[in-house]
Write a protein that binds this DNA or RNA. Sequence first.
DNA 1: TTGTGTGCAAAATGTTTGCAAATCA
DNA 2: TGATTTGCAAACATTTTGCACACAA
Lengths: 154, 154
Amino acid sequence: MNIPVARDKFRRFLTQKGLRVTNQRLAIFDAALAQTEHFTAERLLDFARAIDDSVSRATVYRTLPIMVESALLREVDIGTGEKYYHPNEEGSTTQVAQVVCLDCDKIFEISAPFMGWYGNTVSSKLGLTPVSQRLQVSARCDTLRLTGSCPRRN
Amino acid sequence: MNIPVARDKFRRFLTQKGLRVTNQRLAIFDAALAQTEHFTAERLLDFARAIDDSVSRATVYRTLPIMVESALLREVDIGTGEKYYHPNEEGSTTQVAQVVCLDCDKIFEISAPFMGWYGNTVSSKLGLTPVSQRLQVSARCDTLRLTGSCPRRN
DNA sequence: TTGTGTGCAAAATGTTTGCAAATCA
DNA sequence: TGATTTGCAAACATTTTGCACACAA
């Protein structure tokens, strides 16, 4: 999904929710959608400020949940204290797992269609209805271990 | 595994690591192992202080990673800002998933043996070696939704 | 005896919030 | 116009750390 189309979706989402379309929100949105890798709130602040230097940290933190709710952005919590975000691909109903390299700090997203089935099975046994699922694998880089340097590192 | 046996394992673990067996560490350990539900660092501090009131918050935070490394305790991060802990059952090589009820705040642990297979498969494709995996399902209570009250609540 | 472990309080981290001023509808 | 949104800085919550004293080996 290209950025102008996505931006339009976001504008519509805001309006429909009774929220205002502000320059800051658009700057933060554009900055977020331009990313190809996972990013944190702090890095998004930098990117957004490059577009509109009036953007503040508070507004980034206030805008992130809105973008996540609009389903144009996905939140990824890998248990490192800070949350990561990533633009959501089209047709985002697919379940994805994250493989996090402890050496590179890179996050790889892998489809894991069985997650939905597992969540349903297991939840219904407990009298619960699943809301969301996450599957994460932490791993170490083989190349780094064997050769002392990781091709993906920086 | 009963507590005296586990405590012995912990003493041996400390000694073997060149760490000292202190009253505080033992109090924190006993408090942790006595729990049947998941607990946070803060709650563990309370429990440990009931055994030895000289225990400080800092020591709890410093002891938790040691107990996790000894494999007698398991760390569970459900993405709520604070970490949860749980005594590890015997033969803890089994992979477990957590089902977290968003209504009860209860954490259920369910065996998920396929996790190991998935982690290996997916990691090796990326040239990585898996270190750990986690699978979590967030869910809502059916009974609460249907009847307005949850039998597990408090 | 001596170096590890401790309690305390302060720092660090990532995120949230109160408030007056700015701005979108 | 008037309610929403903003930036700023202070507040927050959890965890970590520096330091002087205590204590296990």
